[in-house]
Design a protein around this nucleic acid. Structure first.
Length: 761
DNA sequence: CCAGTACTTAGGTTG
DNA sequence: TAAGTACTGG
């Protein structure tokens, strides 16, 4: 068992202790994933049946990677029998299998946040409530936290404290909305994200035989990121583990950053109460980061009161200090950070993969995106609007959803008049009213007008008849065609594809939409081919968990050379050689909304801790003295978190510039932003200019060979491939070329960045 | 019923 | 700023 030799003593102990309740407190970068992976592999090696293992991870991607790594040790066929995935995806499957017990169809739809909000909006309107008081997002948050704490609508209604709270906040109708929402979801055969956990609890509570079955099946349970589980998740785990108590939870209280979605740090603190004879292992050696980073992070987190004591340390080298950059505006912040990435990448000849820009809020991505685009640096933004949330994708998926589940109201509302078929708002409202009055779904109303009169005129009825007939014809193909063939058929016959195709003339955004739909269809094709078994390749099968996919999961094998942009939240569990931690300003990070209580501020501090500990070799912090917020320029102060880092680990750096001159507009490029001029701002600035100047600048001048490019030449570009030069403009360092690339269209590039190669014909 | 235009209002993190 | 909504005229 050679793999055991790769572990340090405490890691090895945790791996070899396979029975009974254990808790692993794993400091950042301490090889937690390795322990989990090897522990599972080890269990299988010593004879545990993989069918008896349940491993709950934080992302589906983590699950995939772990399965693969375990497979390398014990063989892929064994590894794939482990039940592994996020709470949501694992229990969505279990719920589908047992749906009939709960009165749901096994092909129930999973409503995403958009669907939930849209439904709530309707309900609020139907109840004639003020949508300024009852904001859908806020209402959903309230319902969500009720469900995460396993409070049914009945219990909610009867809970005096809750009702008092709602009355005091002038929202007495929340209980009614909750009730209506639950009933509407049920009628639509839909579960929202929170239902996946809530209904699992119902299933395990009300059906002892089901509980017994899964208790026997999952004799060994592992939970990653235990500090971020909420009550509903906690109870599921507790019930499943009740018989064998072979439960291993892994986490780090210092990295608990999801209280807003009900995560309860108490779960980790209370483990000792639930399992008094538990064993505790602490992984404290950090293998990821330099001493500077580890110690800086320690100095920050030490300020939190609520924590389990531990001593994270590292054997790694000291590394560079953490550089703090102040810029005047958010746009300048984008440019400075991106220029620095450009320089570092070339001076170290590293890959763009080595760089991450991490921010507190998604909307901060914009200035960096712009700067990256200007320098033609490849990048990928994670989070924000994911692929599956785009309108065009959701529209097509809505057809698929409706095909597998006619009662899916949100899907029906999306496509009943898309593409335009002359069914207007008034008609749809009438249908909803009739459905509500009769306690049936919208589909029931539009397929049985005689039974559920709704005051719709004849010609609209005809249109609706055509619509439902079409959907029924799709459904009839569910068992006959594979996912790809049916998806293609639906995309064409529904008119969605044609609609998007016709719009393509309008502009690049429309072209992109069409391409997105093509990409979705290509994805379905891939899915269809990957399923060996014909009846596992149906569209219904494909639809099972698309709602649960995020684009963090998407990026399979796509480690192309790109800079990563993401929120700190989504960076959890990841690591990068060079991290840029941006927007370190009061009211942004820490967020303005988290300044009211100590525990909120401590969570922000943990978030900062998570951010710092993503970095392996270097970490750069930036902040902007002013930034645009809803079209208004607001000035900001540096974040208190900068001060909280032990100052011996910091060096300050203020890029200065003359008035009216943009950074990229300067001749010569990148050395300028940091040199010369007024060292105003933070006092230590001048000291650090020297270190900036020591960087190797030569890559910036690299594309000298492209100076003799002429119109008509065929050239090769790193990202866009072959293209033809159609136009040249500007002079010297600002010389630009417009090049037509067959696959990407016309692009204008600055020659000094583009690194073009002239091709011989 | 629909498309174009004027107006309002966002407060944050995710499966 | 930008997206989403309400209104107005065809």
């Amino acid at each position: 068992m050679s793999y055991l030799d790769e572990l340090n003593p405490s890691q090895r102990e945790a791996v070899e202790c396979t029975e009974g309740p254990i808790m692993v407190i794993a400091g950042a970068g301490s090889g937690k994933t390795r322990v989990l992976t090897y522990r599972i592999a080890h269990m299988i090696e010593i004879g545990v049946d993989p069918f008896n293992i349940l491993a709950l991870t934080f992302t589906n991607k983590a699950a995939r990677e772990m399965t693969e790594r375990i497979g390398r040790i014990v063989g892929p066929s064994e590894a794939k029998n482990i039940t592994m995935g996020t709470f949501h995806s694992v229990f969505a499957r279990i719920l589908r299998f047992n749906a009939d017990r709960l009165g749901y169809p096994s092909n129930f739809t999973i409503y995403d946040t958009q669907d939930s909000k849209s439904l709530l909006k309707d309900i609020i309107k139907e109840l004639s409530l003020d949508d300024k008081v009852y904001k859908p997002g806020m209402v959903l948050g309230r319902i969500s936290s009720a469900k995460n704490n396993l409070i049914s609508w009945e219990a909610y209604e009867q809970n005096a404290d809750i009702i008092l709270e709602d009355t005091q906040s002038r929202r007495p109708e929340l209980a009614t909305i909750y009730k209506t929402y639950v009933q509407r979801c049920f009628k639509a055969g839909a579960m929202d994200f929170d239902d996946l956990l809530y209904q699992t609890n119902v299933l395990l509570r009300d059906f002892p035989d089901v509980l017994h079955y899964y208790q026997q099946k999952f004799r060994y349970i592992l939970v990653d990121e235990y500090q971020d589980t909420n009550y509903a998740q906690y109870l599921i785990v507790k019930k499943l583990a009740a018989v064998f108590e072979n439960l291993c939870v892994v986490g780090d209280d210092a990295q608990s950053i999801y209280s807003f979605r009900g995560a309860n740090i108490q779960n980790i603190l209370n483990f000792r109460k639930d399992y008094p004879d538990f064993k505790l292992f602490k992984l404290e050696q950090n293998y990821r980061s330099t001493k500077t980073i580890v110690e800086a992070a320690n100095s920050v987190i030490a300020r939190n009161q609520d924590q389990i004591k531990k001593n994270v340390w590292t054997d790694n080298t000291d590394g560079n200090k953490i550089r703090v950059i102040r810029t005047l505006t958010d746009n300048e912040e984008g440019k400075v950070v991106v220029n620095r990435i450009f320089d570092l990448k070339h001076s170290e000849s590293s890959s763009y993969n080595d760089f991450a820009i991490l921010y507190r809020t998604n909307k901060q991505s914009r200035s960096f995106e712009e700067a990256l685009r200007k320098l033609n640096i490849p990048y990928k933004i994670y989070g924000g609007i994911s692929f599956y949330q785009r309108k065009e994708i959701k529209d097509l998926l809505a057809y698929f959803r409706l095909t597998t589940n006619h009662n899916d109201e949100e899907a029906l509302k999306r496509v009943i008049n898309y593409p335009k078929r002359g069914i207007g708002k008034t008609s749809i409202e009438n249908i909803i009213i009739a459905a509500t009055n009769n306690g049936v779904s919208m589909w029931d109303v539009i397929t049985k007008f005689e039974q559920y009169p709704c005051g719709i005129n004849g010609s609209t009825k005809t249109k609706l008849y055509e619509f439902t007939t079409m959907i029924k014809s799709f459904s009839a193909q569910l068992d006959k065609l594979n996912a790809y063939d049916l998806a293609q058929h639906v995309a064409k016959s529904s008119g969605v594809l044609k609609e998007l195709y016709n719009e393509k003339e309008k502009g690049p955004e429309e072209v992109e939409r069409y391409q997105n739909v093509e990409e979705l269809l290509a994805g379905i094709k891939e899915f269809t081919i990957s399923r060996e078994n014909e009846n596992e390749a149906s569209l219904a099968e494909f639809m099972l968990d698309v709602a649960l996919l995020t684009d963090a999961d998407e990026d399979k094998g796509d480690d192309r050379n790109h800079v990563t942009l993401m929120t700190i939240h989504s960076s959890k569990g990841l690591e990068f050689p060079h991290v840029f931690l941006v927007g370190l300003e009061e009211n942004l990070f820490p967020s303005q909304m988290a300044l009211h209580t100590r525990s909120e501020l401590e969570e922000e501090r943990r978030l900062f801790y998570v951010a710092l500990t993503r970095a392996m070799h270097s970490c750069t912090i930036s902040w902007a003295a002013s930034r645009f917020n809803w079209g208004q320029l607001v000035t900001s102060e540096p974040s208190r978190f900068i001060d909280e880092i032990d100052s011996s680990h910091l060096e300050f750096d203020t890029p200065s510039r003359g008035p009216g001159r943009s950074l990229t507009g300067r001749t010569g490029g990148f050395e300028q932003p940091f040199a010369g001029g007024l060292n105003k701002g933070l006092g230590a600035a001048s000291r650090n200019l020297r270190s900036m100047d020591q960087l190797d600048r030569s890559p910036s001048n690299k594309s000298g060979g492209s100076a003799d490019i002429k119109v008509g030449y065929n050239v090769m570009h790193d990202r866009f491939g072959k293209g033809k030069v159609t136009k040249l403009e500007g002079d010297g360092p600002d010389k630009k070329a417009t090049i037509f690339f067959p696959h990407h269209g016309a692009k204008t590039v600055l020659l000094r960045f583009a690194n073009l190669t002239v091709l011989e014909d």
